[in-house]
Nucleic acid binder design. Structure first.
Lengths: 351, 351
DNA sequence: GCGACGATTTAGATCGATCTAAATCAGTTG
DNA sequence: CAACTGATTTAGATCGATCTAAATCGTCGC
């Protein structure tokens, strides 16, 4: 009923053309702001479009012109604030280019990711920004190249034969470790969690290299649970047992927030008895008390970078693959402090 | 170059039909899983599609069938975790229905919202889920009804002539106020911020009604800044001056987080000297220390509800407008506690 | 053996814009 | 005044699927 109505009284380009006494082709040129039409004709046609309430039909245009002004964004997780900020950055650039974002959530599952990518392809997106799910095969990306579907990897990468926008995690880790080492800490742990992917690996490697460079133990790496409530319960891993730490570098701010809660529960004062450094510096970091020292990775800027890479590639498909690697920046606040000796009963080591 | 390639070797339904020695029409029926085709023909066609690597072209289908399997979601803010969870709920349902979400961010600006809605319409979305920007006119929604574009309002509403999925804010406020009153608090403030819209008004009204029902001052309503760092600085508004409160109900968890930080900075112990109740109960609430008492509004469930309303309406456009109003639920944790008298030097009142 | 009937299949028009190649027009030029 | 510009405009084919209405096929009853 309604849809019949919608269909019936839809005003098309042909209607516009007739009312303006020009051809469909001319009307089309007006829409596309071609310089070919004369100013008077343009004005006339535009007036008629206004008058009739003409609505451009992207779908029809897309079919003929093989372009949809639509891009697909695949992220593994919607509720992590990091991805949200990334998305905000992507949206800003894509929107400014007059395009829209089709958003899907892979849940970090490769099978699901594959389904979703096929669906985007069916929908005719012009390109895709993908944060590959953990364990994504290189062949996936190769397949997409074969499809001629412009692709930008973001935050994680599975191949170098394709654009990538991400973070220099190693540099971030070095800043975190150096900061703690300069405060006098020697027993520094790395707390990580989550699925394993390139960004995960780069952070571990970065931590180990930085520790080694300082002559500290690079193997003090501890996995914590994924759920934030469970992370809090795991705080004891760092403060009890034979291997106690006086400082922890966290995989991201979510881990930092969880450990912060857990240390609070254990009665340990962060920024006095224990130092904590987060990673990513999402908005909440500054709202924590004590304020969280964190390595800022500027997710919004990365999103913008990824979107720009994609727009460039759409304009010039033959460009060589490019990398955009952002330098992170340590923000020192209250959660990290000078080492005050074995206030936790930490065992003393020689050297 | 590449796009020529893409276009040239695209395999269409006609190719499939030829290879399978059937007509285009039959192949189309196979795709759409029509019961009209025989099992053998179906198998044959499907085999050919597989073999040729056929990719369905939604765009072409959409043009003819006037349906896009696409819905638009307009939200005012991407980085508020509340909206993110809402979005996750919407995505789950829409995805399960085989459709995709086109996401845009209005930034809570009416002008921008209007542009975006037009754009969605041009893109041919089948329907829209809209959280109206503050100060949205009723006429906007009426216009969309005129366009025959199925619409669901979510969280905020500007008219009753259109589906709506939201929260019973008044009930949530009553739970929060009752809880604090039962703990012995009498000087209870409401801390709010942000742009003014229906959800804002419903919360204020709910607070006032609940306070009045308890014989408490309904006018103790204080606006705090929008930026989270600035909220912290505003904490003194509740603890200093002539009008001191012993407990605060917050507009949402973001305000609660900010105030919590500010109170910490003032050396006030939350859950002992002062009680704080959040609103929304986003994931972070349980990670705060002390754990935040908060009124859970289940954003993900609301998102699911909104998406279901929209799917129903797509199926039956003539349905009367429906409302889905979720009952929120108070989660009592550590940030609210029994009133201990004037530990803040609170002035004593008679009655 | 013929018309009827249910089950399958199909030709051809159609959705609404874009593209190509050619037509039209006003103004110059020799 | 015919030929030649450059600037505008246009007819008609086209993108790839869907829809309508009609054709085909095998079988069954009489």
């Amino acid at each position: 009923m309604l849809s019949e109505g919608r269909k019936k009284n839809r005003v098309t380009l042909l209607d516009v053309a007739r009312h303006a006494s020009v051809s469909r082709a001319t009307a089309s040129l007006v829409i596309r702001k071609s310089p070919l039409v004369s100013t008077e004709t343009r004005a006339k046609v535009e007036a008629v479009m206004q008058e009739l309430g003409y609505v451009y039909n992207m779908g029809a245009a897309r079919l003929r012109a093989d372009r949809s002004l639509t891009i697909g964004v695949v992220i593994p997780n919607l509720v992590n604030p990091f991805f949200t900020e990334l998305l905000a950055g992507i949206d800003r650039i894509i929107d400014a280019a007059g395009m829209v974002v089709i958003l899907v959530n892979s849940g970090d599952l490769v099978a699901r990711q594959e389904t979703l990518l096929t669906r985007m392809r069916e929908h005719g997106v012009d390109g895709i920004i993908l944060c590959p799910a953990a364990e994504t095969e290189m062949s996936l990306v190769e397949k997409m190249v074969e499809w001629d579907l412009p692709l930008v990897q973001v935050l994680r990468r599975v191949t170098d034969d394709c654009d990538y926008a991400g973070v220099d995690y190693a540099f971030g880790m070095r800043q975190a470790v150096d900061h703690l080492a300069e405060l006098g800490h020697r027993d520094i742990a790395f707390a990580l969690h989550g699925p394993i992917h390139s960004a995960y690996q780069e952070r571990i490697d970065g931590f180990r290299d930085a520790m080694e460079a300082r002559g500290l133990d690079p193997e003090n790496v501890i996995r914590v649970p994924h759920q934030i409530a469970a992370i809090a319960e795991a705080a004891g891993l760092f403060t009890e047992g034979s291997r106690r730490s006086s400082a922890v570098v966290c995989f991201n701010d979510v881990v930092a927030l969880g450990l912060s809660a857990g240390l609070y529960d254990l009665g340990i004062s962060i920024g006095r008895d224990f130092s904590l450094v987060g990673f990513d510096d999402v908005a909440d970091a500054e709202a924590m008390r004590p304020r969280l020292t964190s390595v800022a990775t500027f997710p919004e800027a990365i999103g913008e970078g990824a979107a720009k890479l994609l727009l460039d590639r759409l304009a010039q498909p033959d460009l060589a693959p490019r990398k955009l690697v952002n330098a992170p920046q340590l923000h020192i606040r209250q959660s990290s402090a000078i080492w005050r000796g074995s206030s936790l009963g930490r065992r003393q080591e020689s050297g």
